[in-house]
Design a protein around this nucleic acid. Structure first.
Ligand SMILES: [Zn+2]
Ligand SMILES: [Zn+2]
Ligand SMILES: [Zn+2]
Ligand SMILES: [Zn+2]
Lengths: 135, 135
DNA sequence: ACGCCTATTGATAATGATTGTCAAAACCAT
DNA sequence: ATGGTTTTGACAATCATTATCAATAGGCGT
């Protein structure tokens, strides 16, 4: 059976505290900073479990890191993510879901899943960026 | 300036020979098998260059590997990929592009890029899978 | 509350992909 | 052909993630 440990709870809590998507490493060092002695491997396991149970969303960052987030809904949805500060907006659009499904079956594909994410600069980060242009 | 070496050409050729997306490691061992003494680091560099120049598309596999493909068009497009055999179908839909752009600006995001990929089982692999069900 | 069984933890090693290093080799304009 | 520069490749280094496995600690039955 599945046991309740303070470690799992700590990961769940810290994940809830995060604004956007975080990496296992990031979550672990955040926990460490706030005094928790939790082990790195445990954080990896807890996050994988949360994702399996549907309590956390996961995606691959553009450079191949696995990122996790506790989203407000457990329904299927997608994300608009600030590549600078991590601010994340949840997106749920039936039209897109239907498009993906139809596109797959149109070409004879089955068991189709899709990866749809938008990365950009949020309004705040855009403002900051315009103050300090690239030299 | 950029020089022409047989190594770059070999990578370009082998990438063209591949049906779908391939990893740097996979391309390297394919080249090795066909007798080429090209180095692994060189394959990584060549693929990165091709992607930079727009001559190759790249994406992250669901488990975080970087995959590359020489697509038939250099225009912006997306992919429908068989997760078993790698067969890839190129998808180009303006409606999706517009949706992504609008969704980003609607929330104040700028410099938005998007990741849109569909993974499934192609018709052939679906047929094979039904012959040998999971025991 | 106690003890036992087993799931879980965590320090550490192992893995696997990717990148950095740097001397030797290969390009290419002259 | 020669020389200056770029590219290569064997190898080490990095980095995220996973595997090990002895030690720990839930939680059920008592
Ligand atoms: Zn931001
Ligand atoms: Zn979806
Ligand atoms: Zn297939
Ligand atoms: Zn697009």
């Amino acid at each position: 059976m599945k046991r309740n440990t303070w470690q799992r709870e700590a990961v769940r809590t810290e994940l809830g505290r995060a604004e956007g998507f975080v990496s296992a490493q990031g979550l672990h060092s955040a926990l460490h900073t706030s005094g928790s002695p939790i082990g790195l491997a445990t954080v990896y396991r807890a996050l994988a479990d949360l994702a399996l149970e549907g309590d956390a969303d996961s995606l691959q960052s553009p450079d191949g890191e696995s990122l996790y987030r506790a989203c407000s809904t457990t329904d299927h949805h997608h994300h608009l993510i600030c590549r600078n500060c991590g601010l994340t907006v949840e997106i749920e659009v039936d039209a897109i879901e239907n498009w993906a499904t139809e596109e797959a079956s149109k070409h004879g594909f089955t068991e189709a899943a899709h990866v749809i994410d938008i990365f950009g600069l949020c309004a705040a980060c855009t403002a900051l960026a315009s103050d300090r242009p690239t030299p």
